[in-house]
Design a protein around this nucleic acid. Structure first.
Lengths: 353, 353
DNA sequence: GTTATTCAAGTTAACGATAACATAGTCCAT
DNA sequence: ATGGACTATGTTATCGTTAACTTGAATAAC
């Protein structure tokens, strides 16, 4: 007979009634505060065990007006760097006694909003947002920040009078990646992965453009590729396809580039496949630089020159900034931090002995 | 002056008072049920907007006795397959109007327990658990299941009279991987990555052993390697080191293996590095098989033969099974499902033209 | 013109826990 | 013996919502 209706879990009062004390006494035993005699304590604990009592967090948090829980919204968990971020955040939080709930929002504004709402609905004490920004989502995030919920954003734009932000210096990363190629003597340098969103928002592209201009290299629009049309459905590993297609397009140009800077490592990976397929050599025929230094980058053949952003540090700082807001209980002025990236030179741009 | 104390958010009653109606009327407007005149509705909505009212989910859920939220506990989110699982779960749930909160528990039983507790404390409607099993964690999970919370476990052992489980057929996957090597003529076949936990629990190893025995190949303990000592701190990409060390040990044997089956793709990756470093060729000198078919496997050189487990399907099924339990509201007998794996043959075992 | 029916609210009592306050006994010091 | 400090409880009110019930119009039905 497996059709037993699930019995309702025991409450504090149930336990209290069984032992013959007031609910408050049981509460004291559970939470280990206030005075309780050893004798009573034992009787209560016995009943708690026997009745399989678990306290109701909803009720508790409602009364306490806090949850000791923080939410993290990430798009694209397929991306190893989201993963690293999440881990760093969790570690920092758990150290301070906070729990972390992660919500995934892969693609749409609708999912962003639903993630925000479900977290706020659970009265989390604060939120860290690391999704790609989009209009409707930002609007809701604004409301949430307005309503006094502590918010920190990571790796994306967002302006609000009480929201901290933290990000890698994507512009400079893009600049250095491109400069590295220029230093190696390249003049025709392509960019793969532009144009999903407002182009001026893509700092890596801006860095690329700036590096070219700085070195007096004329910008050739034909060398800048990406999916102009499809606005925002490029999660994780799927950007690989963009790299592949983009590189194919670049290779078919009358005068093809001798080097390419890809928006991220996955895109670079796709580009590598396309180059290999065309029977060309990396880096002799085409040098390639990626971005993010995902674990993949070390294991491609040739290994991938890429720009590492300090994900762990970003996660730590995000958590710390959020906790500061939570603890202060006040509305503080926003703080924005930008962290330096590091160029990691490997075989996809330079031949090792 | 940024030292404004955070003002308390408006409540239903606040809004009601402002408009001059009963709280219940405001509740009706918010939830869109019951009768409310168009006139009142507009006045309420206006006040809601003006006061930046957000309903308190804790109070709501406490009253409604449900949260429409499901928890997922994963260890090791660095692993792409956890990621795929999480995504599949989320998709299936969101389709049914449920939210997903993900908790990470990287290593210790303590973290497992704290993840379980934080989810249960928020009165989630059910939990999916996909961490590696460990004694204390299982004990708490047992209590949770006992207390009537719907639970489904994925990819791990767990016995409870009302907990469903779902898993890939790791034994058979291990068997097929090994048989593939045997079919190719290999007789000295190593295993890398044994021994973190109770060895009989590692189904992939069991499959390996069984394949050897089935084909009359004697088992040579020296060919089975792993970290016997360190029990359970091998998150994600770090198993790569185990692969590297394990392979080095195997290569230094008087008569080294001609093929190796690695516990997972990361381990295989480490093994590949060690082989390359020793100046040997894959697969000519050493053939290598991994497990999981992570995105990496396609991009190693040579590309990696591996066993794919249907992560997406596991996620979908887990979510569906859990929802069935939640919806039924009864205590149902446990169901256990095992899904077939698929051997993906690539260049690390077979030379392509 | 009386009785149903529908609409538009309001009232009450939880949901389960806890902060804050109140009570009462014991023990010790002055 | 009177007051204060400490211990061990109990009582009350409340956190913010909503289910369930009630009230009172307005409209429709006979």
């Amino acid at each position: 007979m497996s059709q037993n209706i699930r019995r309702k879990p025991a409450t504090l009062s149930d336990v209290a009634a069984k032992v013959g004390v007031a609910p408050m006494t049981v509460s004291r035993v559970i939470n280990g505060n206030g005075y309780v005699s050893e004798e009573t304590r034992e009787k209560v604990l016995e009943a708690v065990k026997k009745m399989n009592y678990r306290r109701n967090g909803l009720a508790r948090n409602l009364k306490r007006q806090r949850t000791d829980t923080v939410g993290l919204v990430i798009g694209d968990i397929s991306n190893p760097f989201s993963t690293e971020l999440a881990n760093a955040v969790r570690e920092t939080l758990s150290f301070k006694g906070y729990n972390l709930f992660i919500c995934i929002s892969e693609q749409s504004a609708k999912e962003d909003i639903s993630a925000f709402d479900s977290l706020v609905d659970h009265n989390i004490d604060g939120v860290i947002v690391a999704t790609r920004s989009n209009e409707e989502g930002d609007e809701r995030l604004n409301e949430i920040a307005d309503s006094g919920v502590p918010v920190v954003v990571v790796g994306r734009d967002f302006k609000h009078e009480s929201v901290d932000s933290i990000s890698a210096d994507n512009f400079n990363g893009g600049f250095e990646a491109t400069q590295h190629l220029i230093d190696l003597g390249h003049r025709r340098i392509g960019f793969i992965g532009a144009g999903f969103e407002n182009r001026s928002r893509l700092k890596r592209l801006q860095g690329y453009l700036s590096a070219l201009t700085t070195h007096g290299i004329e910008i050739d629009e034909r060398l800048i590729t990406g999916r102009r049309g499809s606005s925002n459905e490029t999660p994780g590993y799927s950007t690989e396809a963009i790299g592949y297609e983009g590189m194919k397009r670049l290779l078919s140009l009358p005068s093809r580039p001798t080097a390419v800077f890809a928006r991220n490592d996955f895109t670079a990976l796709g580009a590598i496949s396309a180059v290999k397929e065309a029977g060309l050599l990396i880096p002799q025929d085409i040098a390639i630089v990626g971005f993010d230094d995902t674990p993949l980058a070390l294991h491609t053949t040739p290994s991938l020159t890429t720009v590492r952003q300090p994900m762990k540090l970003q996660g730590q700082l995000a958590a710390e900034m959020l906790l500061r807001r939570i603890d202060s209980g006040t509305v503080m002025a926003p703080e924005a931090r930008t962290l330096e990236c590091e160029l990691i030179i490997r075989e996809s741009t330079v031949i090792r002995d």
